[in-house]
């Protein structure tokens, strides 16, 4: 009986250990994924930071001088996958400023682009648009490209709200 109790108790302890190990493994795997993402974000030469208003963001260079593609990719989360969407989002701090294909950022420098409106065309500055969609509501992230290497740098996701009807009217 004592033997049974001991073995029963051992089995119980073993089960608890197995479950704890499994839970630990899950947490550690989840942690590893998060850590990998975090490591990737932290090891990227440039950090993208979302600002309070959805679509507003800042880009900071935390390594040596770098040239980034002026065009900024936009991705929408759809059925668990990040999907590229059409957008004219660009690293422009002021509308109408002279523009090349790449933007140089000195070490430690930050650029705060004109916020993205959620539109596919004329999304920051005046533009000639005929077809033009709004992507909200959606989970969105921005994608920078390093000029030359083509390395992609992914920003943190944010929630773009649905298109809100402006009050302007005529």
């Amino acid at each position: 009986m004592a033997e049974f109790r001991r073995s029963s108790s051992l089995r119980l302890q073993w089960r608890i250990l197995v479950r704890a190990a499994a839970i630990g493994l899950i947490f550690s795997v989840g942690g590893a994924v998060k850590a990998q993402q975090s490591d990737a974000a932290e090891s990227a030469p440039v950090a993208i930071r979302n600002l309070a208003r959805p679509g507003a963001f800042a880009v900071t260079n935390r390594a040596a001088e770098i040239a980034l593609s002026r065009h900024v990719g936009v991705q929408r989360l759809y059925q668990g996958q990040w999907v590229d969407v059409t957008s004219d989002l660009a690293l422009v701090a002021v509308c109408g400023a002279p523009a090349g294909d790449c933007v140089s950022l000195r070490p430690g420098a930050t650029i705060t682009p004109v916020p993205w409106s959620g539109l596919s065309c004329g999304s920051q500055c005046p533009a000639s648009c005929r077809a033009n969609v709004h992507y909200g509501p959606a989970r969105i992230r921005f994608v920078l490209s390093v000029c030359g290497s083509g390395q992609k740098i992914y920003g943190p996701p944010f929630e773009l709200p649905a298109y809100s009807r402006p009050r302007s009217a005529r």
């Binding site: 002021v94 509308c95 109408g96 400023a97 004329g122 500055c125 005046p126 033009n132 709004h134 298109y163 009807r165 402006p166 302007s168 009217a169 005529r170």
Partner: peptide, 18 residues
């Protein structure tokens, strides 16, 4: 709708409601 044109930087901008 259409909005009255406005100056935006170096351009005149023509916009409207969707």
């Amino acid at each position: 709708t259409v909005n009255p044109p406005v100056v935006n930087g170096t351009v005149m901008s023509f916009t409207g409601r969707a």
